[in-house]
Design a protein around this nucleic acid. Structure first.
Lengths: 211, 211
DNA sequence: GTCTATACTTCGATAGAC
DNA sequence: GTCTATCGAAGTATAGAC
């Protein structure tokens, strides 16, 4: 998207090790802990190789981001195409590993313009796909979404796991179980198949339980 | 909470300027952009003064955090004691400035243990107060919270603004209006008084609108 | 592709004059 | 309280041998 393509094969073992090390560092100690020296050390490679495979730190972060983003979009696509799109969709956005990493990239975007524009572009794509999948899945099941459009549901659906991920990092889990149970109830009502349970025919009503 | 108290009066003009500069830097460019030199430059002070007023960078961040945290707790307290606690409470957690700064501190907590423990302690206090305020306000209004306890509501209430703040930073506002409208509807049902509108007597039912 | 060596910058922190 | 001067560590990035 910007500048010349760095050297090195896309499937190089060292390259992958550097990407993995970067992810690990970001999750363990935050994006600010990522430096060429530390990444190389964790990957068991020479620091200069970071510049061989990725021209700059920006490119390193972008490569990490793109790898995860593409994987996530494929996962979302797969979820939407399956038999239980709602449950699968929830599973995709709930991946705690991804939620935590996304949080880091959001913070990182705040002072790396290249990361920011990439994140914005990806977010739009992801939300659009999510909204389409939601719209189609709800229509197929004859669910009336009422006043809350799929766009609004997408905000909630994509946001709740991120909230709980933030809380979780701080060791705060008060009320999480109940929120998860509420989601599970919706999933069950619309798609049946509680994980490991019996199949209950999906209802046609979208009336939520009393708050 | 740790180590010796740094020098300098609590109400020193320079000290305040350094704190303000730190906040500004965090919001503009992220916590990683905060360095003694940049803080001093933005505050129009000498870099060495950072170490005079705050012994270390940890202390600087903690001082910034505590100042905001105390102010926020007071705001929450005030909201809970007023005539329209639900609306006031929502207003407190919706402060976009605070939401963005909180995000930075969460990211910062990931690699500064001192910040982390302070953030955890504050979060627990804030949530506890929020939960108590919510419980009391709903009971006073005769609202049955059903299966979703105040703890769960607190997760949603405190989380939604953070989600929308994150989105907002990326310029993504799809569906936000609808979520806000939903919140407004609840506030109106329980407390009436739409901002600038006529007073509608609060209902007794907590049945949410269809999703 | 991998390594050493190094240039240059910025960082946190301290000593000590004023 | 404020300043200059400076140390040592760590950062990004490049040149060039192997």
């Amino acid at each position: 998207m910007s500048g010349t393509r760095p050297a090195g094969a896309e499937d190089s073992k060292t390259r992958t090790a550097l990407l993995d090390a970067t992810v690990q560092l970001m999750l363990e100690s935050g994006y600010a802990a990522v430096s060429t020296r530390k990444v190389a050390a964790k990957a068991g490679a020479n620091p200069a190789l970071v510049y061989y495979y990725f021209r700059t730190m920006d490119e390193l972060f972008l490569a990490v981001f793109r790898r995860g983003a593409e994987a996530n979009l494929r996962r979302l696509e797969h979820a939407a195409a399956g038999d239980h799109p709602l449950r699968a969709l929830w599973k995709v956005v709930s991946e705690p590993h991804d939620a935590a990493l996304t949080m880091e990239f959001i913070a990182l975007a705040n002072h790396r313009e290249a990361v920011r524009s990439e994140l914005v572009a990806y977010s739009r794509r992801f939300r659009h796909m999510q909204k389409e999948a939601l719209t189609s899945a709800l229509r197929t099941r004859g669910v009336d979404t009422g006043r809350l459009s799929p766009a609004a549901l997408t905000v909630l659906l994509g946001g709740l796991p991120r909230i709980m991920a933030m809380d979780g990092v701080l060791g705060i889990t008060d009320g999480h179980d109940e929120v998860l149970a509420l989601i599970e109830e919706y999933l069950q009502r619309f798609e049946g198949f509680p994980p490991g349970g019996d199949h209950v025919p999906p209802g046609r009503s979208v009336e939520p339980p009393p708050v």
